[in-house]
């Protein structure tokens, strides 16, 4: 039954992807991309990857659509097709498809217990998590503790991506902080969005905090919580206008958050070194090593959440500032 659901959703996914490529109207492409993201999240969920599905939900459903539309406001609404390059791209894509299809014959079946991925380190993680860290969600244990170096790298990638986007978007402008113009009304004049939105903002933030601090017990964690809380502030900025959004959290604070979260994460690593452990070995944070692991995970998840939230909001405001100039 899982297979039937997954195949059905994947078929819809392929249809949507082909339609995104074929359409020349970029607004339609953005709308279809939103559907693509929803389908992807449903697929992750059906494959029992709840943490990934939650990330896709938090980023794909809200933030991506908003940022795509901000980008669309800066460019033309129609794609300019280059017929000369079309044959070449069709050729490259078909060759890649054939190679990938050929490669799938070597893949183990879905859920096969003898697959290499189930044999390597996964059994060790599943066995040791209750003993070493004692939290129910193994995904969080792997992400934050066993493979803490990878996650540290990801956080710095998010920070680097944020810096890159800000750098590209500020090219060609005068540089320095742009004056925020008052003529951004937002959706303040529309009664229903205003009332519903104002009601929703605090609850979205509350839910984001729940996802942040419940990550050890259920699906969730810093990445998801950061995206959800950023969505709440984006909703506020859409409703009240850009300038009100920037008054709530000024640009300098956003950049401090994006960099500060990464520094918190790295700082935990240095603290564990100062306490006599190795880098990001949280066991030394408390006399009881299991408690120490849990404290460490809470601290680095907070760093991840702060970075993601700051980076997403900084990118959103950078697009909006570019729109006005």
């Amino acid at each position: 039954m899982i297979t039937v659901f997954a195949v059905f959703l994947l078929t819809l996914l392929v249809i949507t992807a082909v339609a995104i490529v074929r359409t020349e109207n970029l607004f339609i492409a953005v709308m279809l991309a939103a559907i693509f993201s929803l389908l992807m999240a449903a697929n992750f969920f059906i494959l029992d990857a709840a943490d990934v599905a939650l990330t896709e939900a938090a980023v794909g459903a809200g933030v991506t659509t908003v940022i795509f539309l901000s980008a669309l406001a800066l460019t033309a609404s129609q794609e300019r097709a280059k017929p000369s390059a079309r044959m070449l791209s069709v050729g490259v894509v078909s060759v890649t498809v054939v190679v990938l299809l050929y490669a799938t014959f070597d893949k183990p079946r879905l859920g096969d217990p003898n697959a290499p991925v189930q044999q390597h380190v996964a059994p060790w993680y599943l066995e040791q998590t209750p003993e070493l860290i004692d939290i129910p969600n193994v995904v969080t244990a792997v992400l934050a503790s066993f493979r803490g170096y990878d996650t540290l790298g990801e956080v710095f990638v998010v920070l680097a991506a944020c810096i890159g986007v800000l750098f590209v978007l500020s090219a060609g402008t005068s540089g320095g902080p742009q004056p925020v113009r008052p003529e951004t009304p937002g959706l303040r004049h529309h009664l229903i969005p205003k009332v519903v939105g104002r009601l929703l903002v605090p609850f979205i933030i509350l839910f984001g905090l729940y996802v942040q601090f419940h990550g050890e017990y259920g699906p969730g964690g810093g990445f998801q919580a950061g995206a959800i809380i950023a969505t709440a502030f984006i909703l506020h900025a859409l409703l009240e206008g850009e300038s009100a959004g920037l008054r709530a959290i000024p640009r300098s604070a956003l950049l401090t958050m994006a960099a500060g979260g990464a520094i918190i994460y790295a700082g935990v690593g240095i603290l564990t070194m100062l306490l006599g452990g190795s880098f990001l070995d949280y066991s030394v944070l408390h006399s009881n090593s299991v408690k120490g692991q849990q404290y460490g995970i809470i601290a680095i998840e907070a760093g991840v959440g702060i970075t993601v939230c700051g980076a997403l909001l900084a990118i959103f405001h950078a697009f909006a500032a570019r729109e006005q100039s």
């Binding site: 939650l54 459903a61 908003v66 539309l69 959706l187 929703l200 996802v211 969730g220 959800i228």
Partner: peptide, 19 residues
């Protein structure tokens, strides 16, 4: 939780389209 996330966040995309 996941369904709850969608229910809360979907609205933002529609507002972005309106805006």
């Amino acid at each position: 939780d996941l369904a709850l996330t969608y229910a809360l966040i979907n609205f933002v995309g529609v507002l972005a389209v309106l805006n």
